[in-house]
Simulated assay, not measured.
Amino acid sequence: MAFEFIQEALQQRRVESLLRARNVIADSSDARFLTSKNGKQYLNFASNDYLGLGSNLELQGTLTGSRSSALVTGYHQCHKDFESLLCKHFGYESALLFSTGFSANCSVIKSLFSQSSGSKAALDSAIFQDKLNHASLIDGALQSDAKHIRFNHNDMGHLRQRLEKSKAANKLIISEGVFSMDGDCAPLQQLEELKQQHNGWLMLDDAHSFGILGENGLGSVGLGCKPEILVVTFGKAMACQGAAVLASKSVIDFLLQFNRDYIYSTSMSPLMVQAAEQQFLRVLDASEQRKQLFSNITLFKHLCSDLNIPVMPSETAIQPVVLGSAENALSAQDKLKEQGIWLTAIRPPTVPHNTARLRITITAAHTHDDIEKLVTALKVST
């Protein structure tokens, strides 16, 4: 029977405890939400709204849609103004706005190293990626014409070996500032040093670093690292939607010519641009929220240590508890839901096999009582 593979693939996912499904949220606040399925309220420890800025946003009347792609009539004054604001604070010459972080990451890589640009430079280029990089970064490299080389997670010795063996004229090292599934940080200084030693460039996806780390929450840039290509997303600490690519004017001009995702997509809604600009300014001014966030992270880690709960070594908002099999992670997830705590079981292929986990995200909106309840529930559920 034609397309029989669809049902076979779904059944295989069920058997392996890997089938994914969506949950309908009926109502939500900074640290709690109601589900439509049972009307029950849950403590939310699966949110990327790290600073608790997702509520109380006020927008004035503006266009809901940009009405066209940016290169036709979809590039409005609000787009230009927000790009300029981002460049001012991050210290870059130019920027492009995208509707999603996935599109930003993936499209930048594949357009930089595509023969469709009329150049054969892609064939003399190599991309060096951390093995735990986000799927959007991996997909971009796989769709490019450059050689794709992976190095062991945060292993600078392994990266050095890979760089030394490469004869490519154009070398791009790609890493995340904070890794989305492990919560650990990239060794920024060492990445910068290796980049310089091998005449390469560095690209950072700062989705989980921006807003949290560095001076004024500016992520890797606030920590003193300025990669040639920086991607910041608005859907995490900014609690908004969209992303920006920041780079030199020549790189952004190149993307305007050859980035098919940008050229052939309706530009980011002016309504979302206005929201993103407001949220960006709130993030810069969120020193008290960052202080509260790290106080909550410290409390969580101390309580877990006291109860011998094996949390991975992370100092950021992402605090994973690895349980091994997908079955174990799903079982723990269900037990926590019974106690009014919402955590997501992260399973392969999102994480490597035998590393299925509960990905706990601590936010500034959580109270000490919330965190104590979480840790107590973790002890009896894992």
Score class of each variant (00 low, 15 high):
145 D>M: 12
69 S>N: 12
241 Q>D: 11
354 N>A: 12
341 I>V: 09
70 A>Q: 03
349 P>K: 01
89 H>S: 04
164 E>T: 14
357 R>Q: 14
244 A>G: 00
117 S>K: 05
162 R>Q: 15
83 E>C: 13
121 A>F: 04
221 V>A: 01
113 F>P: 01
234 F>M: 15
81 D>W: 01
164 E>W: 06
379 K>S: 12
106 C>L: 08
31 A>L: 02
93 E>M: 02
261 D>F: 13
54 G>K: 01
158 H>N: 15
133 N>G: 04
99 S>Q: 11
75 Y>G: 00
236 K>V: 08
109 I>V: 15
242 G>D: 09
91 G>Q: 09
320 P>C: 02
301 K>A: 10
104 A>Y: 09
86 L>H: 02
251 V>W: 09
329 A>R: 01
365 A>W: 02
244 A>T: 05
224 G>K: 09
225 C>Q: 08
166 S>T: 11
280 F>H: 10
349 P>S: 10
296 N>P: 04
95 A>F: 06
11 Q>L: 13
167 K>D: 15
103 S>T: 09
357 R>D: 00
112 L>M: 15
52 G>P: 01
246 L>I: 11
30 D>N: 07
131 K>F: 13
189 Q>L: 12
177 G>P: 02
178 V>M: 08
219 G>N: 04
265 S>K: 12
229 I>F: 09
252 I>H: 08
297 I>W: 14
344 T>F: 00
255 L>Q: 10
285 D>Y: 03
73 T>W: 09
360 I>V: 15
279 Q>V: 09
126 A>D: 07
224 G>E: 06
106 C>A: 14
304 C>N: 03
105 N>C: 15
27 D>Y: 07
150 R>N: 11
